[in-house]
């Protein structure tokens, strides 16, 4: 008997290629925001009222805002606040939600009921109102905005992680792992987590855009990044009133948000495909 193996017919490494391309783009974005201080053509905080609301030109590729500050420089500097606070926020809610969800799904019983009712409570609460309340108690600022959004956003992840864990819990391979002498922690880390992390990672990648916008929304209300700190969302809000007279003024931060959200979304999809060996060949 000569055993044979089915091989995937489709080109083998296309998911890997996509992962590399979008991964590099995302890393470039992060590197840009890390080195933003050195990349700006002008001082992003230098006001020049004689040159306010200038149209895009060779000197100012994206024009200037109402104080004559170079938009391109502000967008580059703003990437640090926007991208890092968003990534931090998403990392926090993913980690917290997953840990709670896996624990609930695995352990079950009373503690599961209690934690899930708490998460229901947060899900039923309007997010921005809660964020306003937190900011009211703790005062405005980027840290408090992140804290407020994290406090209301983890339940979604806990729900996904819990249902995924429940689905894995009774599978034969986990029972086989138990019989192979693996302890609970090892089973969770080695078998459950890798099998449930795909949908969670995709959700968090897709959430990057939403969270970026929500942080921007809080900044707009004066509860997030405070002027004159450059942040894409608040830059759009600041210049919103001028949209009819100088439409290009919101173009730069808008494009920046659009492109970074796009890159992270595509990366999310690719990570999901890559994490699953069954679709890796496609």
């Amino acid at each position: 008997m000569t055993p044979t193996v089915r091989k995937p017919k489709i080109i083998k490494n296309s998911v890997r290629t996509r992962l590399i391309v979008f991964g590099i783009l995302a890393v470039l974005l992060v590197i840009c925001s890390l080195l933003s201080d050195h990349l700006t053509p002008y001082d992003p905080y230098l006001q020049d009222l004689s040159n306010a609301k200038a149209a895009p030109s060779q000197q100012h590729v994206f024009g200037t805002d109402r104080y004559g500050r170079d938009m391109l420089s502000r967008v580059i500097v703003g990437s640090r606040t926007s991208i890092f606070s968003t990534l931090l926020l998403v990392a926090i809610i993913t980690a917290v939600g997953t840990v709670i969800g896996v624990f609930c799904g695995w352990h079950g019983k009373k503690i599961d009921t209690v934690l899930m009712r708490i998460s229901d409570m947060f899900l039923a609460f309007p997010g921005l109102v809660f964020a306003l309340a937190v900011a009211g108690v703790l005062g405005g600022g980027l840290h408090n905005a992140i804290f407020a959004l994290a406090a209301i956003s983890w339940p979604k992840y806990a729900r996904i992680a819990r249902s995924q864990t429940l689905a894995q819990k009774e599978t034969p391979y986990l029972r086989a792992a138990r019989l192979s002498g693996s302890g609970t922690v090892k089973m969770l880390a080695k078998h459950v987590l890798p099998n449930i992390i795909g949908p969670i990672l995709v959700t968090s990648m897709l959430d990057i855009g939403t969270m970026m916008m929500e942080l921007a929304g809080l900044s707009f209300l004066g509860l997030g990044a405070k002027p004159p700190i450059a942040e894409w969302g608040s830059m759009m809000s600041e210049n919103r009133a001028l949209f009819t007279t100088v439409p290009w003024i919101t173009l730069a931060p808008g494009l920046a948000i659009f492109i970074s959200v796009m890159i992270f979304n595509l990366l999310g999809d690719t990570v999901r495909d890559y994490a699953d060996p069954r679709t890796r060949g496609r």
Partner: peptide, 29 residues
């Protein structure tokens, strides 16, 4: 006790972690 007692399951494919190679599952114990 599992050193003395092992089990073979009804559904072969599902008794292996879909994300791990067969060798990994066989060598786990």
């Amino acid at each position: 006790a599992y050193r003395k007692m092992q089990m073979v399951f009804q559904t072969p494919t599902e008794s292996f972690d879909p994300r791990r190679r067969l060798g990994d599952g066989i060598g786990e114990s």
